[in-house]
Write a protein that binds this DNA or RNA. Structure first.
Lengths: 156, 156
DNA sequence: TTCGTTATCTTGACTCATTCCAGAAAACCT
DNA sequence: AGGTTTTCTGGAATGAGTCAAGATAACGAA
């Protein structure tokens, strides 16, 4: 298990860098998220509990909130579904979200980046972020007959 | 109260057009939303109850869901806060949301409209909507010292 | 290395927005 | 008017997330 050394070192330093204490739950969350982006709090808890024998749900939320506030993580909240987290990349990338299975993928809004950040009128608002979500169906769900519970209304 | 005739007729026809039954709660919700955009279910319930003496909360949600599915209403769900509804459905405008008071305003993404709808790589997704939310502080909140409960972390 | 301070974690209760359910009431087709 | 089917009522339930109080662990100083 020596090749984990580096990966394990990374979160530790990132925590220190933002002045957060280095704890087992935090390291586990950051490490797990590094390889499982866009996970929900519940999924993260499950993943973390596989390597740490016991972590309270509250601890997971605390870790996620603390890291999000410290900008180590980014929280994305697709409408109507639990929040998802990703290890914070400093770039302002956006997301594709499947309406059916909630699968979430990153996209770089190459063309639209600059325009998106400057709405035509800001109505006096002081803006700090432009969040873009592209809604649709993932390849799997697009090729599958719609279930009753998730029909997408097609009526124009 | 005769000058309400037209305003009252409008929702009625819109409901018929999409095959929804015309009921008092539905008309009241649509009418109220026409003059109070970006309202939450709770606010809508309160507004509607001023003219209809009694409407169940469930009815409000049913109306909102039915109308949203039928595209008479558009639901916007700013991360971490209750859903809001608006009657502007046909144009693909975006929103400014105040992180502090949740005030929500419309913006037409003049420049970015087309680019925003075409992410560089769609990863096989079949997209049907691009949702853009500009986060920041509204004029009122921007000029006010931050409360503890809503501090915006400024640490880079 | 041990100690004290303070941040973090545990447990468990709780909130809030929203949905589910079963039956009653109302809308629409004929 | 009559029969269907949709919608509304009332109340219970869900799920995601937070609050609170005390136990525990991290880290800086001695």
């Amino acid at each position: 298990m020596n090749d984990q050394g580096l990966a394990q070192q990374e979160p530790r330093e990132r925590l220190r860098a933002v002045g957060l204490r280095v704890t087992a739950p935090r390291i586990a969350v950051l490490e797990w998220l590094a390889t499982n982006p866009h996970a929900t709090a519940e999924e993260i808890a499950a993943g973390v509990r596989e390597r740490l024998d016991s972590v309270s749900t509250q601890a997971i939320y605390d870790v996620l909130n603390a890291c999000t506030r410290a900008r180590l993580l980014r929280r994305i909240e697709p409408a109507g579904h639990p929040a998802r987290f990703e290890t914070r990349t400093s770039d302002n990338h956006h997301h594709l979200v499947c309406r059916m299975c909630h699968r979430t993928e990153d996209v770089d809004c190459v063309v639209g980046l600059a325009p998106c950040l400057e709405p035509s009128s800001s109505a006096g608002f002081v803006l700090d972020e432009a969040e873009v979500v592209f809604w649709g169906l993932c390849p799997v769900c697009a090729g599958r007959p719609q279930t009753e519970s998730h029909h997408i209304e097609e009526s124009a």
